[in-house]
Simulated assay, not measured.
Amino acid sequence: MKKSALAIGLATALLSSVAMAHQAGDVLIRAGGIFVNANSHSKTTTATEIGLEVNNNAQVGLTGTYMFTDNIGLELLAATPFSHRVTANVPALHDSNVPGSGNLGNVVSLKHLPPSLYAQYYFLDKDAGSRPYVGVGINYTRFFDAESTNPAITNLRVKKHSVGPVANLGIDIKLTDDLSLNAAMWYTHIRTKANFTALGAEHEVKIKLDPVIYFAGLTYRF
């Protein structure tokens, strides 16, 4: 009898634990590592072509989600400021007999914050051990602390604001009643513009970033 009572008690506790999942009214906080694959492209709008490439960066990521229903949530993405190096290449200076000619190396450093707000749809039932989800919304990127790191680049100005769509894909895998393992990714469009003086002339280069952003961390449910 005691063994049966114990078994029933354990089963009840287990079922109660399974039922405590993402549901209406929950607040989900996610924290972990976040990596930006910048995937940048540039186009020079002045006479001399100067190619700019934005390097990748990793930081600490943080998201907060409010569940309006068992399947629909609204999430805000934040992170510590991303810091990027920008390299430059000048095709007109390229000499096939001189390795590395035309490559100016790192010429600019800058930071940005990419807060994003998006609605999410969570698949499966709220008691499921894992909850895959998708999301769509808007990204706002703010560039700041742009500095020249090469004496050949002077009078640097970078457009500070960019707004574009963002898509999100992720999954929570339950570890305990309130803690889950999370993996997620985002895709967005970011646009900016750099004006600067180099090679004795003024230049304007438009930069497009189509970053894929990867996240791995933990979700805590309040």
Score class of each variant (00 low, 15 high):
residue 182 N to R: 13
residue 104 L to C: 11
residue 124 L to E: 03
residue 109 S to C: 09
residue 141 T to M: 05
residue 100 G to T: 12
residue 140 Y to K: 08
residue 188 T to C: 11
residue 105 G to V: 12
residue 170 G to Q: 09
residue 170 G to R: 02
residue 115 P to E: 06
residue 119 A to W: 07
residue 130 S to R: 09
residue 103 N to G: 09
residue 194 A to F: 05
residue 114 P to R: 04
residue 169 L to E: 04
residue 178 D to M: 07
residue 138 I to H: 00
residue 105 G to D: 06
residue 157 R to F: 14
residue 111 K to H: 06
residue 175 L to P: 01
residue 152 A to T: 14
residue 191 R to G: 06
residue 195 N to S: 14
residue 117 L to H: 12
residue 116 S to N: 14
residue 108 V to E: 01
residue 116 S to M: 03
residue 132 P to N: 14
residue 111 K to Q: 11
residue 188 T to M: 12
residue 196 F to R: 02
residue 140 Y to W: 03
residue 149 T to I: 15
residue 106 N to E: 15
residue 191 R to K: 13
residue 115 P to T: 07
residue 135 G to N: 05
residue 186 W to Q: 15
residue 134 V to F: 14
residue 136 V to E: 02
residue 113 L to M: 11
residue 161 H to A: 11
residue 182 N to G: 14
residue 122 Y to W: 10
residue 121 Y to M: 07
residue 174 K to W: 05
residue 175 L to D: 03
residue 101 S to M: 03
residue 115 P to W: 02
residue 158 V to T: 09
residue 175 L to H: 05
residue 143 F to G: 00
residue 172 D to I: 09
residue 152 A to N: 13
residue 151 P to A: 07
residue 157 R to E: 11
residue 187 Y to D: 04
residue 189 H to M: 08
residue 196 F to Y: 01
residue 146 A to C: 06
residue 108 V to Y: 01
residue 172 D to E: 06
residue 159 K to M: 10
residue 127 D to Q: 14
residue 103 N to Q: 12
residue 164 G to A: 03
residue 107 V to L: 10
residue 135 G to P: 03
residue 147 E to Y: 10
residue 102 G to V: 08
residue 109 S to Y: 13
residue 103 N to P: 03
residue 192 T to N: 14
residue 167 A to W: 07
residue 191 R to C: 01
residue 112 H to Q: 15
residue 129 G to A: 08
residue 170 G to S: 10
residue 142 R to M: 05
residue 151 P to S: 11
residue 136 V to G: 15
residue 181 L to P: 01
residue 160 K to M: 06
residue 138 I to M: 10
residue 166 V to F: 02
residue 133 Y to I: 02
residue 102 G to E: 04
residue 198 A to P: 04
residue 190 I to E: 01
residue 179 L to V: 15
residue 183 A to S: 06
residue 102 G to L: 04
residue 174 K to D: 00
residue 144 F to K: 02
residue 161 H to S: 11
residue 168 N to Y: 00
residue 131 R to P: 00
residue 154 T to K: 09
residue 122 Y to N: 12
residue 111 K to M: 03
residue 193 K to T: 12
residue 134 V to C: 08
residue 172 D to R: 13
residue 173 I to N: 13
residue 183 A to Y: 04
residue 140 Y to Q: 00
residue 120 Q to L: 03
residue 166 V to T: 11
residue 128 A to Q: 08
residue 161 H to K: 10
residue 194 A to Q: 07
residue 172 D to G: 12
residue 106 N to A: 10
residue 150 N to S: 08
residue 134 V to M: 11
residue 102 G to A: 07
residue 104 L to T: 09
residue 186 W to I: 08
residue 167 A to K: 07
residue 173 I to Q: 11
residue 180 S to H: 09
residue 186 W to P: 10
residue 117 L to I: 10
residue 126 K to C: 01
